[in-house]
Structure formats: C-alpha cells, structure tokens
C-alpha cells in the first residue's frame, strides 16, 4: 500500500517538471481561499472576482471560493501553508493576515512564508462625524480633543484595525488624546455614531455615502493620497494640515509556498489582465476602492515595509507585538 503510494508520488514528481516546462496553466478548478465566512468583506470580493473571471472568460477552468474562517486569518494562512507546492490554490489576503501574526504567537504563518502573487486593491477611508456635530473640520475636532483630553470618543474595530492606526498617528502628531471604543460589527460602529454615543469614526467611503446624502453624517477628511472622485470637496489628511502617513486597507493574492516561478508569472499576469477588464474597473469604482495592482516582486517589498510600519504603530499604541 505504502510502496504503491510512494511509487505514484515518484511518478508524479517526475511528470511535474515536464508539464511546467511548457508554461503553466491551471488544469482543474482553482480554489480561492478567504479567511471570512460567507458574506464577509473578503468573501464578497472573492465571489465578485469569480463572477468576473467567468464573465470575461479569463481562465480555462472555474475559480471557486473556499471559506476557511477562524483564528483571525490564521486558519486560512495555515491552510495555504499546508498546500505547499499546490498550483491550483490561491489565497485572498487582507491586512488582517499581516496583523494577526504580529500580535498573536499562535498564528505561525506570516505572509512572508507564502508566495506573493499580486496586490489588487487599496481601500481608502474617510473620517466622519454626525451631521449635527460642532466640528466643521478635522482641525476643529483636534482642537476640541486638546481642550478635553480623553473626553471625545471614536468608534471602530479591534485595536489593531486601521481605524485605530489612523487615530494613533493623529494623536501622536498633534499631541492629543481621545478614547477609542471597539465594536465587533461595522453596523454597531455606525449606530454608535448616529446615536450620538461617540463623536467620530473612520469609515469606508461607500458606507458613508448614503448617510451623507441623507444628511445624517459629515465627512471631515479623507485617509488617502489624493482626493476620491466622489468626495471632491473633502481635503485629504495632508491637505487638512496633518502630515501623517496614509495607511491603506490592502487586499491582494498569495499562493502556497514552494510553487515554481512559471506559476507565479502566470498568476501575476492573470490578475493584471483581470484588473484591466471593464467589469473590474466598474467594481472598483462602485465600491470606491483604489486600483492598487502591484506584481509579485513589488508586493513582497510592500509587505515588508507595511509590516515594519505596523509594528512601530502598534508599539506606540501600547499593543504587545510578538514578532
């Protein structure tokens, strides 16, 4: 039994280089692994990608979404690490895959242990207050925070989320201090602001749009390098006079470790082609994302820099880092 298995394995390993020599093409359904359950942010993006791939006929095979929730991204990352050498598995990563190994010793697989493929999306954010709040500009809010240290409140996600990172950077550069209250769900964060229980929040532009249009919310500044198309009147952080680094919410694709160079090239080109399709452009525009395409080599550089910067920011915020 075992000897037969090892024979098969041997045969497979002999054949593999041959098939790769002629240029890689996925031969069976490709698994796109996400770290959320159905309906989570990554899941929705992954399913949208699967639909586009079908519509634009970009692959000879189907792309299917595999949910590996749990461990704040660590379970999905470990799943990819176990698939070493598997040419038909990819993972859709977000910033969580970077942050979890930084703060949790249990999460043993970092993005560095996987094979970078491509960066796809940068998600900008805006800083919003309730429409009847006295702050007309971010400077007004900072001024108020200066007068009442620790009294004003911001709603957001966990303390490693981008919301808190933006707060940390602003606090550090202005010498102010306000409270940060974590809520697990995006709905609860918005409800806390609209109910007047907190004063400010960092929110995705698409989420804020309708609340602004209904006159319930006002945007003070945007967390992006340049102004978003749908917020032409709102200054970026830099334009508002706060020279802090812009921390993007990033999404991209990684593959299991130990896959041949041909595969990496195939996939980075595949995602470049995807990012040039009209369906992708429309999706990016509808969701007010930024096209953040980078190839494998640039992505590797990006996440080294990003990890170093995150570690610094988290340390400043008093979060214990383990790596």
């Amino acid at each position: 039994m075992t000897s037969r298995m090892s024979l098969i394995a041997l045969a497979a390993s002999l054949c593999a280089p041959l098939s790769f020599a002629q240029g890689f093409k996925p031969a069976r359904t490709v698994d796109l692994v996400v770290h959320t359950g159905p309906g989570g942010g990554s899941d929705v993006l992954a399913r949208a990608i699967a639909i586009m791939v079908e519509k634009e006929k970009l692959l000879p095979v189907r792309l299917q979404v595999i949910n590996r929730p749990g461990g704040n991204g660590a379970v999905a990352a470990a799943h990819l690490a176990e698939k070493r050498g598997d040419p038909n598995t990819l993972g859709l990563f977000t910033g969580v895959w970077l942050q979890t190994p930084l703060v949790s010793a249990e999460a043993k697989v970092t993005l560095r242990d996987l094979t970078p493929i491509a960066r796809l999306v940068l998600e900008p954010a805006v800083i919003a207050v309730k429409a009847d709040a006295p702050y007309k500009t971010l400077a007004d809010f900072i001024e108020a925070a200066k007068k009442n240290p620790g009294q004003l409140k911001q709603s957001g996600g966990s303390n490693t989320s981008r919301d808190n990172v933006v707060r940390q950077l602003l606090q550090k550069s202005t010498g102010t201090r306000w409270a940060y209250i974590s809520f697990p769900g995006g709905g609860e964060r918005i409800a806390a602001l609209l109910g007047g229980h907190v004063n400010i929040m960092v929110i995705e532009p698409e989420e804020a749009g309708e609340h602004i249009r209904a006159g319930n919310m006002r945007v003070l500044a945007q967390v992006s390098e340049k102004r978003l198309a749908k917020f032409p009147q709102v200054p970026t952080l830099k334009e508002a006079g706060f020279d802090v680094p812009v921390v993007p919410q990033v999404r991209g694709v990684v593959a299991p470790p130990g896959i041949p160079k041909e595969n990496v090239e195939f996939w980075q080109d595949f995602f470049l082609r995807l990012s040039r399709t009209p369906s992708w452009r429309k999706y990016i525009e509808d969701n007010q994302f930024e096209d953040g395409y980078q190839n494998a080599a640039d992505l590797a550089k990006f996440y080294d820099e990003f990890t170093d910067r995150m570690r610094e920011i988290l340390k400043d915020a008093g979060v214990k880092t383990v790596r």
Partner: peptide
Amino acid sequence: GTDLFSSTSRFTFGQMELLS
C-alpha cells in the same frame, strides 16, 4: 479567543483555531 480591545489571546493554549 482574541480579546477585541487589546488583541491579547485568552485561553487559546497555543491553538490558532481558538484565536477566534
């Protein structure tokens, strides 16, 4: 699991599956 406020692991006994 992971504490939402401090990102500290609680009673996970080194198991990444218990982080969430």
